[in-house]
Amino acid sequence: MFNLIRRDFILQKWQLLLLIFIVLFFVLIDRQHPAFIFLLASVIIPINTLANDEKAETNILLNSLPYTRTEIIASRYLGSIVFIILATGVTSILLYVFNKPFSITDIAISSSLALLLLSFYLPMSYIIKPGYNFPVALISFLILSGIVPPMVSYLSEKFTSFTDFILKLSVPTLYTSALLLGLAFYGTSWCISSLIYRRKAF
C-alpha cells in the first residue's frame, strides 16, 4: 500500500514543484489569510490526484495489479493525509522564511476544513462519471459558498444558546474539536468510499 502512495509522488513530481511556487506566490503577495494559504496548499494535490484516478484505464491497471480494492481506497485516504501534512509543513517553512506571522489556529482551521472538503469530494469522485468530476466540484463549491454563510448566520441568530456554548469554549478546545470532527467525517467518508469502490465494475 505504501507503494500506492509512492505512486502519487512519481505521477506528480512536477505538480509538487509547482505547488511550492503557488504557495510562494501567495506568501509573497501577502494578501490572503495564512489559513487560506494552508487550505489551498493542502487540497490541491489530493484533488489533482483524483483527476488521474478517475480514468477507467487507471482503475483497470490498479485492479489488475496485486492490490485489493480496500487497499486502493486506503492509499487514497492515507495519501491525502500525507499530502496535507507535507503541504502544511512546506507552507509553514515558507511563511517562516519570509517572516509572515501565522498561528497553530490557522493550521487547525485549514486542516479541519481540508479534511471536511475531501470527505465530501472523495466519495463523490467514485460515483460521478469520469470527466464530470471537476465541473461538479466547482459548481457545488460555488453553490455552497453562496448558501452556507447566510445559513450559518441565520442559524446562529436563531439558536443563540448553541452559539453561546461555542463561544464559551476555550480556543484550544474549539480547534481540537474541529480537527476531531474533521477526522470523524474523514473516517466515515473512507468507509463509504470503500463500499462504493468494492462494487464498482471496470
Binding site: R7, L11, I60, S64, P66, Y67
Partner: peptide, 28 residues
C-alpha cells in the same frame, strides 16, 4: 493478492499512465 501476484495481463488498449515514461511506469 495471491492470485494477481501470479497473473500477467495485457489489454487491447494502453492502461498505463500515458504521460509517463516507461521507466516511471516500471517504478510504479
Amino acid at each position: 493478492k495471491a492470485i494477481k501476484e501470479r497473473i500477467g495481463f495485457v489489454y487491447d488498449g494502453n492502461v498505463f499512465y500515458e504521460g509517463l515514461h516507461l521507466k516511471d511506469i516500471k517504478r510504479i
